[in-house]
Computed example of a mutant assay.
Amino acid sequence: MMMNHGKIFGTTSMGERGQVVIPSEAREELGIKSGEKFVVFGDAHKGTVILVKSEIMNKFANFFFNKSKRFEKIAKEIFDKTDSEIEEEERE
């Protein structure tokens, strides 16, 4: 079954030790290897659990921090300009 945000790969269940098996079709199609690390998100009210490959989260974090550095630089330029404009107005 296809959905516009992904694909349903079937069902699974949790064992006594809290382990959940990811269906083989999902592992193959998504390139999930044994020992792969995941970040686990969940919503108790909605009863949802989402697994995201750690490498994807690392890429997102790097992207975010790189963009935030650029934003900080732009903000500093704006604030520096604003400060100098205020000083000029005060001198007048």
Rank of each mutant, 00 (worst) to 15 (best):
M2S: 14
M2W: 13
M3V: 10
N4H: 13
N4E: 08
N4M: 13
H5Q: 13
G6E: 02
G6R: 03
K7E: 04
K7Y: 07
I8A: 15
I8N: 15
I8R: 15
F9Q: 02
T12P: 00
T12Y: 02
T12C: 01
S13R: 13
S13H: 09
S13N: 07
M14S: 11
E16R: 09
E16W: 04
R17L: 05
R17Y: 03
G18I: 10
G18F: 03
Q19Y: 14
Q19G: 14
Q19S: 12
Q19C: 15
Q19D: 10
V20M: 04
V21N: 06
V21L: 12
I22V: 15
I22W: 02
I22T: 08
I22D: 00
P23I: 12
P23V: 12
S24W: 09
S24N: 14
S24D: 15
E25M: 11
E25R: 10
E25A: 05
E28N: 13
E28M: 04
E28F: 06
E29W: 05
I32L: 08
I32R: 00
I32M: 01
I32T: 00
K33S: 14
S34H: 15
G35A: 10
E36G: 07
K37Q: 11
K37H: 07
K37C: 08
F38R: 00
F38Q: 01
F38S: 02
F38L: 01
F38Y: 04
V39W: 02
V40K: 05
V40R: 09
G42R: 09
A44R: 08
H45T: 15
H45M: 09
H45E: 07
K46W: 03
G47T: 02
G47A: 02
T48S: 07
T48H: 02
V49E: 01
V49S: 01
I50C: 11
I50F: 04
L51I: 07
L51R: 08
V52P: 00
K53R: 14
K53N: 00
K53F: 09
K53H: 00
S54F: 09
S54M: 08
S54W: 14
E55Y: 14
E55A: 12
I56L: 03
I56H: 04
M57Y: 02
M57T: 12
M57N: 00
M57R: 04
N58F: 14
K59Q: 10
F60H: 07
A61K: 11
A61L: 14
A61G: 05
A61Q: 15
N62D: 11
N62K: 15
F63Y: 06
F63R: 09
F64G: 03
F64P: 01
F64C: 05
K67R: 12
K67H: 03
S68D: 10
S68W: 13
S68Q: 10
K69Q: 09
K69T: 06
K69A: 06
F71D: 10
F71Y: 13
E72Q: 11
E72H: 08
I74R: 13
I74M: 12
K76Y: 11
K76G: 13
E77T: 12
I78L: 11
F79A: 06
F79W: 12
D80G: 10
D80P: 04
K81Y: 07
K81I: 04
I86Q: 04
E87I: 04
E87T: 06
E88G: 02
E89F: 15
E89I: 15
E90H: 10
E90D: 13
E90R: 10
R91F: 05
E92Y: 09
